[in-house]
C-alpha cells in the first residue's frame, strides 16, 4: 500500500473503494468492530448484574422459582419455555447463515426464502419474550413485603409455594382504588391487589398447615429457608403490603435489583432483536428488488447476518446467566 493512498483520487469513495485492509471490505470490518463494542456494552451490563448477584448472593431469587410458565400448561415448568426461545433464536441463526451461503452461490430464490424464515424466527422470539415479560410483570402467586422491604412467600406443608388467593379470607372489601379524580393534585394510586394484607394475615392464622419462605438462602442446601409457624408469625407481624408481580420498585420474587436487571438486560437484548428484524426486512426487500443480484454480490446479507448472529450470541450468555446459573 502506498503511503499517499489517502490522496489517491481512485479511493475517494466513502466505503474505501477497493482497499481491503485485513482482506475484509470496509463495511464488514466496521460491522465487526461495531459488534466488538456492542459486546463490551453487553458485558458491562452482565458483569454489573454479576456484581449485584455476588453482593446479594445469600438472598438472590432462584430463577426456577421465577420463570416457571409454559403456554397452555398450568403448574411449575421451569426452563422449558426459555429453552424453546433459545431454539427459536438458534434456528433463525441457522436460516440466516443458509441465506448467506445461498448468496455466495447467487441463488436469489433461496436467499429470499431463508431471509423470510429468519424474519419469522425473530418475530417468534420477540413474541415469546413479550409473553415472558407479561408473566414476570403480572406475577402469579403473590407475596408479602415487610416494612424493611424483604419479601415473604407462602408455602404449604410440602414446602411448595402457594397463591395468596388460595388461603386468604375473602369477604366484603371496603377498599377503594384511589383514582385521579379523588386525589390531591393529579396523583392516582397503584391498582389494588386481589386480596388485602389483612385478609392474607387472617387466612394465614386460620390455615395452621401454612408457613412462609423468606429470601435468605440456606448455604448448605442452596434453597430458600422455610420458617416454622412461630417464627413466621413474628415475621408477618412486621409486614407492610401485598405484592403482585414485578416492577422497578418491588417484586414478589425477592430482591428488587433482580427485576431491574432482568428488565434492563433482556429489554436491551430485545431491542437488538427488534432492530435486527428491521435490518433483515430492509435487506429482504432489497433481495426481492434484485439490488444485490445487479451488484453481483450478496455481501449486504452477510453484514446483516453478522449482526443477527451477534444477537443470538448475546442471548446464549443471557440464557446462561439469568436462567441456568
Amino acid at each position: 500500500m502506498k503511503a499517499t493512498s489517502a490522496l489517491d483520487s481512485s479511493v475517494d469513495s466513502w466505503d474505501g473503494g477497493d482497499k481491503e485492509p485485513l482482506k475484509a471490505s470496509y463495511g464488514k470490518m466496521m460491522m465487526w468492530f461495531f459488534i466488538l463494542s456492542d459486546a463490551l456494552t453487553f458485558s458491562g451490563f452482565l458483569t454489573a448484574y454479576g456484581l449485584m448477584r455476588f453482593k446479594f448472593s445469600d438472598t438472590w431469587p432462584i430463577a426456577d422459582q421465577v420463570f416457571n410458565h409454559f403456554p397452555f400448561m398450568h403448574g411449575d415448568h421451569p426452563m422449558y419455555f426459555v429453552a424453546l426461545m433459545t431454539f427459536v433464536l438458534i434456528f433463525s441463526s441457522v436460516t440466516m447463515v443458509l441465506a448467506v451461503d445461498a448468496g455466495h452461490r447467487q441463488d436469489k430464490k433461496k436467499v429470499t426464502s431463508y431471509m423470510f424464515l429468519t424474519i419469522i424466527g425473530g418475530l417468534l422470539f420477540l413474541g415469546s419474550q413479550a409473553w415472558e415479560w407479561k408473566n414476570f410483570i403480572g406475577g402469579n402467586l403473590g407475596a408479602i413485603q415487610m416494612n424493611d422491604g424483604k419479601i415473604i412467600q407462602f408455602v404449604n406443608a410440602d414446602g411448595k409455594q402457594i397463591a395468596l388467593t388460595s388461603f386468604a379470607k375473602t369477604g366484603p372489601i371496603d377498599r377503594v382504588n384511589h383514582e385521579r379524580g379523588n386525589g390531591l393534585w393529579y396523583t392516582s394510586g397503584e391498582d389494588l391487589p386481589e386480596v388485602s394484607l389483612a385478609q392474607v394475615l387472617d387466612g394465614f392464622k386460620e390455615n395452621t398447615s401454612l408457613t412462609v419462605r423468606i429470601e435468605k438462602i440456606d448455604p448448605v442446601t442452596g434453597d430458600k429457608i422455610i420458617l416454622d409457624r412461630a417464627q413466621a408469625t413474628r415475621f408477618l407481624a412486621a409486614s407492610k403490603r401485598v405484592v403482585y408481580g414485578a416492577n422497578l420498585r418491588v417484586n414478589e420474587y425477592g430482591n428488587t435489583q433482580f427485576a431491574d436487571f432482568f428488565f434492563f438486560i433482556t429489554g436491551f437484548h430485545g431491542f437488538h432483536v427488534l432492530s435486527g428484524i428491521i435490518i433483515n426486512i430492509i435487506i429482504f426487500v432489497n433481495v426481492l428488488l434484485g439490488t444485490y443480484e445487479k451488484r453481483k454480490s450478496y455481501e449486504m446479507v452477510e453484514k446483516a447476518a453478522l449482526y443477527w448472529h451477534f444477537v443470538d450470541l448475546v442471548w446464549v450468555f443471557v440464557f446462561t446467566f439469568f436462567y441456568l446459573i
Partner: peptide, 21 residues
Amino acid sequence: TSIFLIVYLTALLLIEGSYVG
C-alpha cells in the same frame, strides 16, 4: 480484545461484589 477486556472487567466486579456482600 473482547476476551481480555471482559475477563478483566468480570474479575474486578465480581471480587468487588463479593467483598461488598
